[in-house]
């Protein structure tokens, strides 16, 4: 018998602090597996967010530099402009990338910064205790929308990925989910392609990943995953939103 699934090299041998059933740790694993498959562990620099994943550097065994809340794209811009041959990615939640960091993100995409954003959309502010996020869906109850998100008062969820697709400098944007084995496999493919787009020097790439937050949804992990499948995807359909990558097979492999 041979081992076909285990912990990948770019993850430290540390237990995740995330709640049971949290999508963050699945996404951490997929990013780390991608780093190892592309053999870029020694040339990748990650920018963790504020929020539940602020401790991402406890898990990734790669160089990481912390950005203030929302400023990931600006910090990544500085890192990448200084070291153009490294692979730079931000790991950001919905509040980080689609509320407080909207300007930094849109302008980095518009400049075509050769960086990759891993955008974890769980529809809620997790770390701070379940407040409304820019991506909280209409009617969804949060601690700051006790009667459910009301479009008249709160606006409707923001489709940041679609907005970013309008930017000239964005090359590849896909929305995926980690609600099922099939979608987890798709998510990893998307992350890999996003990194390859960057490595080929094509421009800005982003993968928006719908992710369950059982704790703040007040559901069991299995129910939370089902909620992502049945409800969240109606607001945020899973699809390739923009792909101008062309044939990446021709892209030079990493050293």
């Amino acid at each position: 018998m041979k081992q076909v699934f285990g912990r990948t090299e770019s993850l430290k041998d540390t237990a995740f602090h995330y709640c049971p059933g949290c999508g963050h740790s699945i996404i951490h694993r997929l990013v780390a597996e991608t780093i190892d498959e592309l053999n870029i562990k020694e040339k990748v620099i990650g920018v963790p967010p504020a929020g539940c994943a602020v401790l991402a550097y406890n898990y990734f065994d790669i160089d990481m530099g912390e950005a203030p809340h929302g400023r990931g794209a600006a910090v990544a811009t500085g890192l990448k402009r200084s070291l153009p041959d490294r692979v730079v990615f931000t790991y950001q939640g919905d509040g980080d990338i689609a509320a407080i960091g909207t300007a930094e993100t849109i302008h980095a995409a518009n400049r075509g910064e050769k960086i990759t954003a891993i955008f974890v959309n769980n529809g809620v502010y997790g770390m701070t205790g379940g407040q409304m996020a820019p991506t909280t869906i209409v009617g969804q109850i949060s601690t700051t929308t006790p009667g459910g998100r009301n479009p008249d008062r709160d606006g409707i969820p923001i489709d940041l990925s679609e907005m970013l697709a309008l930017a000239n400098g964005s090359v590849y944007i896909e929305r995926t989910s980690v609600d099922s084995p099939k979608n987890i496999i798709k998510t990893k493919k998307a992350i890999k392609k996003a990194f390859q787009v960057q490595m080929a020097g094509l421009g800005f790439s982003l993968v928006e990943i719908l992710s369950p937050c059982p704790t703040n949804l007040k559901m069991s992990p299995v129910q939370a995953s089902e909620w992502v499948s049945s409800t969240m995807t109606t607001q945020f359909p899973l699809k390739v939103i923009k792909d101008e990558a062309g044939n990446l097979g021709a892209a030079p492999p990493s050293e």
């Binding site: 530099g65 950005a67 400023r71 794209a73 600006a74 910090v75 990544a76 402009r81 200084s82 302008h107």
Partner: peptide, 25 residues
């Protein structure tokens, strides 16, 4: 490298990113 940033917030954080790589910004 010169970037006209979208805000002062972005500009100082671009400095932060370069500074992390050890170069003068």
């Amino acid at each position: 490298v010169f970037i006209q940033a979208e805000s002062e917030l972005a500009a100082i954080n671009m400095v932060l990113g370069v500074s992390m790589t050890g170069k003068r910004a």
